[in-house]
């Protein structure tokens, strides 16, 4: 997602923290975050182009072979270097500290928290599991109304921006409040299944990746070939998908 998407996911998640999580996150957040996880959820995007962090770039995606509409960890996450591998890795780093305070390796737990929060966001953006051949839609040039862009940016930013302008009085916080209300009422029966992980796992990103490539094939790539102008029809039919992914994302991160 873009900055607004990550901010929304982390803001929603904050509302579902249990007491121990509130305490632990506050301890781990950098000073400049002002106690807000949402303030630092884009940090991995801010640094990924810096020379010393360039290796993190591949952790924002999983590489689905072209036209395959399913996800396989062994095929799509070579050497664990992908968004699902990163979620497992940073979950284990944070666990190693909370389960056994005498852990030998001292990870940077502040970075682990910011990476985990960001990648939990990215794995829910369908085109972050998009096809390797078109770089998850980055190479699919389209128009968003009158603006030239690419399909990946439509899903990272444009759908959220248009929703904010059209329905939420250009206010991200009003959009977030609307998602929080939908979680309380419309999706309340779904929240328990969104929260749970099979087999007592602490984190379970693989099904999230499978959902995303399924949504990418059904919604993102459909009727969006190179050179297409995407307008109201695409926006109105895809906005519910994006809003549900952001809300689900916040629940699962918390």
């Amino acid at each position: 997602w873009g900055d607004d998407g990550h901010y929304a996911v982390c803001k929603i998640a904050q509302g579902y923290f249990e007491e121990e999580t509130v305490v632990a996150v506050k301890k781990l957040l950098p000073e400049y975050a002002g106690g807000e996880l949402a303030a630092v959820c884009s940090w991995p995007d801010d640094i990924k182009k810096l020379p010393q962090w360039r290796w993190t770039g591949a952790l924002h995606f999983a590489d689905t072979p072209d036209f395959k509409c399913n996800y396989e960890y062994s095929r799509d996450c070579p050497k664990d270097v992908c968004v699902t591998g990163a979620i497992f890795n940073y979950t284990n780093q944070l666990l190693s500290a909370s389960e056994n305070s005498h852990s030998i390796v001292h990870y940077n737990l502040t970075e682990a928290l910011m990476f985990l929060s960001h990648y939990m966001g990215d794995i829910h953006q369908p085109l972050h599991e998009g096809f390797l051949g078109d770089l998850g839609g980055n190479r699919v040039k389209v128009n968003w109304y009158s603006q030239e862009t690419n399909l990946h940016r439509v899903w990272d930013d444009m759908i959220i921006d248009s929703a904010r302008e059209t329905y939420y009085n250009s206010s991200l916080s009003i959009m977030i409040q609307s998602l929080q209300a939908k979680l309380k009422y419309g999706w309340s029966n779904d929240v328990p299944s969104w929260k749970s992980c099979p087999l007592n796992q602490k984190a379970c990103p693989n099904p999230y990746a499978s959902e995303s490539i399924d949504l990418a094939c059904k919604y993102a790539y459909t009727n969006a070939t190179v050179g297409t102008t995407l307008g109201d029809y695409y926006f109105l039919s895809r906005l519910p998908v994006v809003e549900k992914r952001l809300a689900q994302d916040g629940i699962r991160l918390a």
């Binding site: 249990e18 666990l95 389960e99």
Partner: peptide
């Protein structure tokens, strides 16, 4: 739910 599961994990008893 992921952060809640991580931070609610009880510390293992230090091995004797």
């Amino acid at each position: 739910a992921t952060l809640n599961r991580i931070f609610s994990a009880k510390p293992k008893l230090a091995r004797a």
